[in-house]
Design a protein around this nucleic acid. Sequence first.
RNA 1: CGGGACGUAGCCCAGUCUGGUAGGGCGCCUGGUUCGGAUCCAGGAGGUCGCAGGUUCAAAUCCUGCCGUCCCGACCA
Length: 552
Amino acid sequence: MPDPTPAAVQSVHGRDCANSAHHSVLGGACLPGPRSASSRPMKPKASSEHEDQVGKAGGKITPRAEDYPQWYQDVIREAEMAEPAKVVKGCMVIKPHGYAVWEKIQRELDGRFKATGHKNAYFPLLIPQSFITKEAEHVEGFAPELAVVTHAGGEKLDEPYVIRPTSETVIGYFFSRWVDSYRDLPLLMNQWANVMRWEKRTRMFLRTTEFLWQEGHTAHANHQEAQEEVQRMLGVYGDFAEEVMAMPVIRGVKTESEKFAGALQSSCIEAMMQDGKALQAGTSHDLGQNFGKAFNVQFQTQAGNREYVWQTSWGVSTRLIGGLIMTHADDAGLVLPPRLAPIHVVIVPIFRSDDERSRVMAAAERIKAELVDIDISPPRARYRDFLEVVIDDRDMKPGAKFYDWERRGVPVRVELGPKDLEKDQVCVKMRVDSEAGKGKEFIPQAQFIATIRERLAKFQDALLAAARARLAARSVELNTWDEFLKTFAGEQSSFAWCHWDGTRETEARIKEQTRATIRCIPLPGQGPAPEPGQCIVTGKPSAQRVLIARAY
RNA sequence: CGGGACGUAGCCCAGUCUGGUAGGGCGCCUGGUUCGGAUCCAGGAGGUCGCAGGUUCAAAUCCUGCCGUCCCGACCA
């Protein structure tokens, strides 16, 4: 069971606890709390020894309506989520605040993978080039974006290594060594890793040359089991996106031309960003026996025959963070759903004199001490999760702090001043006005503490509801090509549900003329109820509508 | 990889056309004043102008190449 102490040691200065000067002062611990409560002069100087940049931001965030791509860049910079690596093309540095969100994503997903029977493992970063070429479609799909290691140890390698763009091949090789009998199946694995794809155009989080992800790889005795696994994990992704990220998604199947290179079929979840564009947020592939045959992954059946395994693979990446930003953030900066927020509550002390300062800080510490013991673990979680609370005792004007924490997306802000102490109350402001709270609320301290869980839950629900409303509002059923052209005029995008004749030619034509693509063929219950109709381009018969949108 | 924009102090940018001692704002440091939505005053630190060549008495500025960023395409599970 994790000790709740980590919640208590976090501070605005805690982002770089490696600072040696800081450690010497504090005896090796990064504990701002007691320090803050002592009778120090009003102008704290300890923070000046940190290299952190809290309070240094303050740059402009371009309004979404003015320039959406610029807004996206601005939010990432101002929230200090990440920055371009500069020295390595297309790569990024995920900064502490961004990485903390990724860690939360990891923990949530990892728990769900384990609950569905998967075990984590780790495979090599480098893959022999010959492996990649063993599956015909796979090599065709990935060859253009491979980075290759040709020299090592001062010598040219006999066979170059490819830096993994994905690990089906190397894992296929090991599966062939590990699987002998039907008793070895199913083999259910996952790895958390970095991969590299030399993309022509990169965007922070959405498509970077190197990115972090998880890739699940499983082997099964028959196709049906594999297909069930594909659906199971797509379900995990969909639930995670909606329950944890508060990001509604459409679950569906990719068309032939959009599927994973080497798969029989690819399933996906597609989310809508605030500009109406789609983001492929996760995929789950039915690999059939393609890799089983390429890497000779055979097993003996109960009847004694030798058969190739049926494999699946599924993954989500740091792209999810981009999706999170473009789902919830606003013109004031990042907005984080409580279940992924590294910090849930920030307490901003308000004071004038030294006397007020010490009284307010003491009260803030008391409130924090109560809050950090509150268990906010999700239902059935295998770990305990506690409220993360920060007291912002920086020497800045309160208003400046408000802007700062809003940019970082902290869900709840508490203002605590002398007036509040007199009335035993706190001033609460939610990051986004919703049912969880509107404007500044003045409520008794005890009530705030007693209801914080409910408040966060409501906030989480409100974000999902708002995103669902947006998805509904920008989803349209289109029946004529004229309507279609109008919907995708200029840079616009919506989720267009249209009939399609099922041919690759029509799909290509739609893309050529509008740059919109078929995002998926929806699964039952996703999108409009299936009803036959006529293809929006050719007028040929169609069994159901498909989802078409511009995509990131 | 094509088209466009760009790279000057931690951040945002002016200066480049028309070559001549590197500037501003924010942030940072010191002191004071303030503190419930981005205080104010005074003083101060910080830059081989993305990198490498070239032209020139002289290059942030002109020329060539390279690297990187952003946007639009092509490409992309």
